[in-house]
Amino acid sequence: MAVLRLLWRHRALVAVLVRRELDARYRASFLGFFWSLLNPLFLLAVYAVVFTYIFSPRFPGADPYPLFLFSGLLPWLFFSGAVLDGSLTLIDNGPLLAKVMCPPEIFPAVTVLSHLVNHLLALPILLAAMVVSAVAGLHPFPWTFWMVPLALIPWLLTTGGAVLAISVVSVHYRDMRDLVGHLLNLLFFASPIIYSLDGLEVPAVLHRLLALNPLTSLVAVYREVVFTGRVPSPMTWLMAFIVGIVSWWLGTRVFLRYRETVVEAV
């Protein structure tokens, strides 16, 4: 809560820094902000071709597969991108922390929020794809799409917690970034993003392990809302929110524990 209060107090600064982050990213490029739309569009186009014509995986309720994949991948890209950038955010902003007085929580927050903005910019592409496939009769339109903001809350909490923790830990241990890269890779395949847990033919032990993955419920909530078109069960919601809250809580604890020594270490 302390972290949230502080961020709220500095909300104007955070907003300006998020803008700077996005501005600086596209400043020197010809298409500028359109990249936020084009990136997911290209991604979707490639998947559509590969997974329709080259090979087409079959999972119950995962049809058409490119859209199924895309709806799992979008929030994952938000999460993994923020976490990866989070491992560098305090180090990159070291000069600011050491020479100007500013609270370190600002930088992880800026990382998460700028990735969130990118994610929100990709949502219209997803929506458009859903409309197109509904019109083409491939897939019924998910009328639950409007619940996306709700489904994003646990994602935001989870990502926020993870980024807070990783940002301070990587200041003290510089090889954290490599480790994070590998862990993300593992987590990616351990989460039902490219596959669906339903009808997955693996040993029961593995199935149970995969179901224990905290991200599973997050992926489920998001995907049911934007793709399946079903209101997630209260149990799924509950799980997702518990994961988010626990992650946020743990993240802030780790952050506060290392916070004081950040300036000395960067």
Binding site: A24, R27, V100
Partner: peptide
């Protein structure tokens, strides 16, 4: 302590002034 410590190279001086001022 270090002048212009917070300046971001990619954005304009005017925007940097805004951000630096807010940081201060």
């Amino acid at each position: 302590i270090e002048l212009g410590a917070g300046f971001h190279p990619e954005i304009t001086g005017r925007e940097n002034v805004l951000i630096n001022g807010m940081l201060l």
